[in-house]
Simulated scan of single mutants.
Amino acid sequence: MSERPPLAGVTVLDFSRVLAAPMATQILAELGATVVKVERPRSGDETRGFEPRLPHGESAYFFAFNRGKRSITLDLKHPDGRDLARRLASRVDVVVENFLPGTMDRLGLGYAELSADNPRLVYVSATGFGQTGPNRDRKGYDTVFQALSGVMAMTGSPDGPPAKAGVPVADMTSGLWVAIAVLTGLMGRATGGRGRHLDVAMMDVQLSLHALNAARLFALDEDPVRTGTEHPGRVPSAAFRAADGGWLHISGSDQHWVPLCTILGLHDLAADPALRNNAGRVAERERVMRALTEAIATRDREPLVKELRAADVPVGEVRGVREALADPHTAARAMVTAFEHPTEGTFPALRTPLRETASPPPDPAPPPLLGADTDAVLTDLLGLTPAEVADLRTEGVI
């Protein structure tokens, strides 16, 4: 008999859409919480229409961030829809929303009003710029936050233009902080007996990613610049092209320097006492990088990687997504799995990476069809009769 998942018994009312907050609530769902996703009638979360589309019209984008949830449709512009939302909020543990600040207050669904009926409510607002500040009403998307925060300026080659990260880093790191906010609120409620309103700003999250860049700025008054695959404070730490065209990334510390040079035949560099510590190699970055680049360019990637690994030199092949997902270690960790969807059939999925050592990772549940759980949620949580639900549907409330 399997154990109860860690968040079993926690119910989340999820008003969020697109990526960051839905990613967070998917994590909560896969850790055992019941997540009720509130969507607009007829259209739902706008990502239901995003590419890539599947043969029966569903969106793989939506699938990536909405597994294991229950979907209900509510027209929050209709007074009856807002009333149903308030009643649902009085019966749940957590509310997550990502509207612009003030929107939920104008709908009568802000923290002050909902917590009056449910003092233990944990309420998380996930926005671009937070609940305060001159930009609180400004809209933005992942790449906008990468640009404004300095992340984009730090990404790319030194002699090239700024570049966005290869994944939606602003959305996904913010999603992690939304999940942390929910768990923080639940823990605080468990110890203090009351709920709270937690404010997660995507811009704040991106600025927090500059911890090391800011340390350099604060310590040296040096404005960091993009360095490609190189590390500003460590040499060697960079990607190199091998003779067969493959790329590998080496990131070594002092104890790796002599073994690396020995394998590459760079005996003069290995014998140079000025290069035995990282500070010396950073000071002679150009000389060191030129020698490493020329030496690695004469070796094929796979044999060189095998030799470096045998000498405990930290190295990794630069892989594409397909190659990384097909790796035997990925398979051994069961990171790629699948779920059964009612219209699209079997579809692959990446697992939520958190797992217990004593239990196998749970299989992901499929994302819901739009409004698939409206009737069940309204009857089970609010006690509405089938006739009352039918009337709400006729009136366009659900």
Rank of each mutant, 00 (worst) to 15 (best):
P273I: 04
T343Q: 09
V288G: 03
M104H: 10
L350A: 15
Q255A: 13
R241D: 03
H329F: 00
M104Q: 01
R355Y: 09
K306M: 07
A116K: 03
V167Y: 10
H256Y: 02
V389C: 15
E388W: 05
G316A: 15
R290S: 04
P41E: 14
P162L: 05
D327Q: 04
L100C: 02
T127V: 05
L392K: 09
R87N: 00
A33R: 03
G252M: 01
P348S: 09
D244L: 10
W177E: 09
K306P: 03
K139I: 14
T47L: 10
E344G: 03
V95S: 04
F62Y: 12
H197F: 13
H56I: 00
R70L: 14
D254Y: 02
A358K: 05
F347T: 13
S125F: 02
H256D: 13
F218P: 00
M187Q: 13
A349D: 12
T357Q: 06
D83H: 11
L198A: 08
P6K: 06
Q146M: 02
T293Y: 10
V397C: 13
G320P: 01
H197E: 12
S174H: 08
R287G: 03
P41V: 10
L198H: 10
M1T: 08
G371M: 05
G185Q: 11
D171R: 02
D75L: 12
F15T: 00
P232C: 08
K164P: 05
E222M: 09
M152C: 01
L114Q: 06
E294P: 04
I250W: 00
A64L: 13
F347W: 15
R319C: 06
D312L: 06
V12M: 03
D375C: 07
M152Q: 08
E113P: 11
T330H: 10
